[in-house]
Amino acid sequence: MKVVFAGTPEFAAVALRALHEAGFEIPLVLTQPDRPAGRGMQLQASSVKQYALAHGIPVAQPLSLRMDAKDPQRAQEARAAHERLLALEYDVMVVAAYGLILPTSTLDIKPCINIHGSLLPRWRGAAPIHRAIEAGDLETGVTIMGMEEGLDTGPMMLMERVAIAATDTTGSLHDKLAALGARMIVDALRKMEAGGLPATPQPEQGVTYAAKIAKEEARLDFTLPAELLWRRVRAFNPFPGAHGLVDGVTVKVWNAELAPGSGTPGQVLAADAGGIVVACGEGALRMTELQKPGGKRLPAAEFLKSFPLAGLNFS
């Protein structure tokens, strides 16, 4: 079976690696253009591109796949990509966190299968892992689905569930789901080869949307309940990193837990080796790992040595 793969971040690279190691022929990988990254803002290839190049797999990086794009360069690159796909011998396209919309012209060439990190129809959209943790969901999972024009509305082929632990962050849950999705897509294609991969329409009930994470969301509002802030700290770890302001200085909060206590929202109730306890709209939040600008992520005890909080509060 020949598989065209479309994906960009590490979540997708894990699946690409699994398909390659399982022996599927991959005549082409589609991934987003290189982006500036790091302190030097140097152009950096996506995780998918890095894996593909390391294993001799051809790569294409069109700005768009929409041939009707208003921008002439995007439209030209989309036409070139479309012509390349039409001329290519392949059986199925596998998509995982690609980041570009696949138009009907692409979907109509060959069957397209998506690896989605949620239990559809819950958390359709760009940030299903973040939103599941933020909402306090007790479980999530991976759905292998057929693709159509709607946003993650296609029929479901395989689904497996994963419990969300109280200690899970988006980072840790991402790794679990990436590994699960990689195993499931290999299973799905083998079943497809054997002629046995039925698809079930998604139910109309239970639809929710996982909107893309905006950096502004990561600012902790201490007038909110501590439980919601605790979930957000976990949901925004590692990106974009929850934070609060202390005397005008942005302090990132990487790990936290619920704590007893009450007071004016933002008031520091305790600051010791056990953590920094801050009053919230309801209850209190104990911050156990923090980071000041230009510094490293540190346990609360180490953080306090260089950033004492005497007389200061969070806002």
Rank of each mutant, 00 (worst) to 15 (best):
L173D: 08
M156I: 12
T153P: 05
L245P: 06
R231V: 04
L189H: 14
A199C: 07
S172M: 14
L189W: 11
V251F: 05
I185L: 13
Y209P: 10
L197V: 03
A226I: 15
L151P: 08
G150Y: 00
I164H: 13
L177G: 02
G136S: 07
V251M: 13
H130M: 07
D137W: 10
T200D: 10
G136L: 04
A163F: 09
E139R: 15
L151V: 15
A163K: 10
A166H: 11
K212H: 00
H116Y: 08
F239E: 08
A242K: 10
L220I: 01
A132C: 07
G248H: 03
A194E: 12
A135H: 13
R234M: 12
M145C: 05
A256F: 02
A178H: 07
A135R: 07
L158R: 10
V249R: 13
R219I: 08
E204T: 15
L138P: 08
E149A: 06
G195V: 00
T170H: 09
L220F: 07
M192L: 15
P198W: 12
V162S: 10
P121G: 10
A218N: 00
A214C: 12
D168W: 14
R219S: 03
R219L: 01
Y209D: 11
A179C: 09
M145I: 05
E216T: 05
A126M: 06
M145V: 07
Q202H: 12
H243D: 09
S118H: 00
T250L: 02
G241V: 13
G181W: 03
A210Q: 04
F222S: 02
A210M: 05
D247C: 13
F239A: 06
V246Q: 03
A179R: 09
A165L: 09
E257D: 11
L258P: 01
D175H: 09
P238V: 01
T223I: 15
T140V: 14
T169A: 14
L224Y: 00
A178L: 08
E148F: 11
L228P: 06
G117A: 03
D175M: 09
P225Y: 10
A218M: 01
A256L: 02
E160C: 06
L228G: 03
T208L: 12
P240S: 15
M147A: 00
T250A: 03
T170Q: 12
E257C: 14
A259D: 10
V251T: 02
Y209L: 09
I133Q: 01
T250F: 03
A165V: 12
